[in-house]
């Protein structure tokens, strides 16, 4: 059982809600994924516009815990203010903390992330920090009060899968008891299965589902991959070898 700030999720698949062809397809994808969490955001809304309210009604109807993000924030101050606004609007102290440091890769600014995480934790937030797979950064985030870590697999929306397997393995091995989620960069279900096989506790997917030809079907495929990967991790996979080892016994083999 994995607890995220004391809460056990119904599924280890976390699903983003952006970029779907329609609200109906989004709702269908969330249901087919059996998502344990859905991520949401905040944007400017003019008086009289109802898009935000309609979206909120849709999300509430799905009855899945929400994880608001601070997407698009580049400074500590922006991220902290956005988190405070999200807490009021969504009624949760969970926050997926993003502080972007570089526009081409949307790479997290680990220095600003640690500072924002410290401020928010002191303010009672339960912070899910979107981070690089940096061991020292992870240590600082834990010291700042984070009880969950969310390393990237690859740049957001790239679909490249797990870009640094060694780094993700090392991070998992260094902090075996910290709930960890691979967030961003996952493109196909096999990437998600791979993250789970490494021992990650969950994955967060958005673009790979939303931009699939059939998002709902892809959501189901991801759910199956996450479950398979988790089962494989628990079943303790064999060790990889460089040389062949015959699987059929050689003792008693005929000499012909």
């Amino acid at each position: 059982m994995t607890l995220f700030y004391g809460t056990e999720l119904a599924s280890r698949l976390m699903l983003g809600t952006a970029q779907y062809p329609s609200p109906e397809i989004l709702a269908d994808a969330v249901r087919r994924a059996g998502a344990g969490v859905v991520t949401v955001s905040l944007r400017r809304e003019a008086a009289g516009a109802r898009a935000g309210q309609a979206f909120w009604e849709l999300i509430r109807g799905l009855d899945v815990p929400v994880l608001p993000n601070t997407a698009g924030c580049h400074t500590v101050r922006e991220a902290v203010t956005t988190a405070q606004m999200a807490r009021e609007v969504f009624g949760t102290d969970w926050i997926k903390l993003e502080v972007i440091g570089e526009s081409d890769t949307l790479q997290p600014d680990m220095f600003a992330l640690v500072e924002a995480a410290r401020i928010l934790t002191e303010d009672g937030f339960k912070v899910f920090p979107y981070m690089t797979e940096d061991l020292v950064g992870a240590e600082r985030l834990l010291r700042a009060g984070c009880e969950v870590l969310m390393p990237w697999g690859a740049p957001i929306g790239s679909g490249k899968g797990l870009n640094n397997l060694f780094g993700l393995r090392a991070l998992r091995a260094h902090f075996p008891d910290v709930p960890m989620v691979v967030d961003a960069g996952i493109g196909v279900p096999s990437h998600a299965a791979q993250a789970m096989e490494l021992g990650y506790d969950a994955v967060l997917i958005n673009t790979a589902v939303a931009k699939a030809g059939d998002p709902a079907e892809m959501a189901r495929a991801f759910a199956m991959a996450v479950e398979a990967g988790r089962m494989a991790y628990i079943a303790d996979p064999m060790e990889e070898r460089d040389m062949a080892v015959p699987s059929t016994p050689v003792i008693g083999q005929a000499v012909l």
């Binding site: 983003g16 809600t17 952006a18 970029q19 779907y20 989004l26 991520t39 949401v40 955001s41 905040l42 944007r43 400017r44 809304e45 516009a49 898009a51 935000g52 309210q53 979206f55 909120w56 999300i59 608001p68 993000n69 997407a71 606004m85 009021e88 609007v89 969504f90 957001i156 967060l204 958005n206 673009t207």
Partner: peptide, 26 residues
């Protein structure tokens, strides 16, 4: 500015106000 603080929040000329609503996110 929390909803409960809005009535007491005095605006000044040049104030930068942001009004945000829920939206899709990843």
């Amino acid at each position: 500015v929390a909803a409960s603080q809005r009535p007491a929040l005095a605006l000044h000329a040049g104030a930068q106000v942001e009004i945000l609503a829920p939206m899709q996110g990843g």
